[in-house]
Nucleic acid binder design. Structure first.
Length: 367
DNA sequence: ATGTGC
């Protein structure tokens, strides 16, 4: 059997980790994989490269979606005026958000057709690269699309990056205990069973981001309107097959937010439909790691104090009461978001709409 | 990534 074609969307000046390219090759050689696309934020993952899309005419591979099924980005316009925003006051208000959400968890899950599974975690951000962030508008690139998107240069915006917490993990664990990393033929009843669980995890993750946003807006005594919500870990029907996205934003679901690191800009972009199929209807989902978590810890803990990393070069602040995590997630550990977006633009895949600048990033707080 | 793993 021949390995699937691999396309990597990156200009020569963009650095791509060879380990990630090797991981892409391995995945391309799996039975039934017909097309593979690496995004400019491609980086090595645990066996599977992150920042990639995989298409198969015949098989669904749960391990290509990974454990955080439905992980993605939501963006809200808040009622806070940019000129009235005070970071000190916001920081004082943002407490208790890692604790169990005291709201009607079962009720909210039932409202989207879900059982109370993993309900305790609903409304919590989780760890790793997840966050909630307040941003101001830095640059409007396309005024007409900006207004159409519901963005407002005078308003603070809220971005939420989280997923399905323990639920997606449990679904992948169950699959792996039976099939390990083997794919499921589309006609196998186990495939339909996995997809049903996957779809439930997607709904759980979307609801989770909405509840997280509600909690933050509530603490900040404001309201918000959701402008977009997109999953970058999923498997969906595409043409006559199955499209797996592993850290790849969908190009067929409206406007897309592409965050840089927690000390860099975030772009709002419009996907261009003309060449989207060649990129498996997918885009970069962020800046992508330059250093592994352990590399970032080693290098940055020698050069910086925690307090240095709680403020960024853009003047924003970072709430992260986890010593290791603040080094692992430092901006220095990530690639340049401007280059990632340029690569997508040069490939004819997007039109940039706006650039947003972080004001305050919330990662984790003990109480 | 993970109601985490030693």
């Amino acid at each position: 059997m021949n390995a699937a074609d691999i396309r990597i969307i990156a200009s020569p000046e963009s650095w791509i980790d060879q380990v990630a390219v090797d991981q892409l090759r391995q995945t391309a050689a799996l039975p039934g994989i017909d097309a593979v696309v690496g995004m400019p934020d491609l980086h090595a993952g645990r066996g599977i490269a992150v920042g990639a899309a995989f298409w198969s005419r015949s098989h669904v591979y749960p391990h290509l979606v990974g454990s955080d099924i439905g992980c993605g980005m939501g963006l809200w316009r808040t009622g806070i005026a940019r000129r009235k925003f005070r970071a000190d006051a916001a920081e004082r208000r943002l407490h208790g958000l890692d604790q169990t959400w005291p709201g009607d968890r079962a009720g909210r899950l039932a409202a989207v057709g879900l059982p109370p599974a993993a309900g305790e975690a609903l409304g919590t951000i989780g760890g790793g690269n997840h966050f909630a962030e307040l941003l101001r508008v830095e640059t409007v690139i396309d005024a007409a699309l900006f207004a159409e998107a519901g963005l407002d240069a005078g308003a603070v915006h809220l971005m939420v990056h989280s997923g399905s917490r323990g639920l997606g993990q449990a679904i992948l664990d169950r699959h792996r205990s039976r099939f390990n990393v083997a794919g499921l033929a589309a006609e196998d009843p186990a495939c339909a069973a996995y997809l049903a669980e996957h779809d439930a995890a997607i709904r759980w993750a979307v609801l989770n981001r909405a509840v997280i946003a509600e909690r933050f807006l509530d603490r900040l005594a404001t309201r918000g309107e959701r402008l977009l919500d997109l999953c970058h870990n999923s498997v969906t029907r595409h043409r006559d097959g199955w499209l797996h996205r592993k850290g790849a934003a969908p190009a067929d679901g409206g406007l897309v937010v592409i965050p840089g690191s927690r000390g860099d800009m975030t772009y709002v972009v419009r996907p261009r439909p003309d060449r989207a199929d060649d990129a498996l209807q997918s885009l970069a989902h962020g800046a992508g790691r330059k250093w592994s978590r352990s590399e970032a810890r080693d290098k940055l803990s020698r050069r910086f104090r925690i307090a240095d990393l709680e403020r960024t070069r853009l003047g924003s602040r970072v709430i992260c009461e986890d010593r290791d995590l603040i080094f692992e997630e430092a901006p220095q550990a990530y690639k340049d978001i401007h280059q990632v977006v340029r690569d997508l633009q040069q490939a004819g895949l997007i039109d940039p709409i706006a650039m947003l600048c972080p004001l305050l990033t919330y990662k984790v707080r003990r109480a």
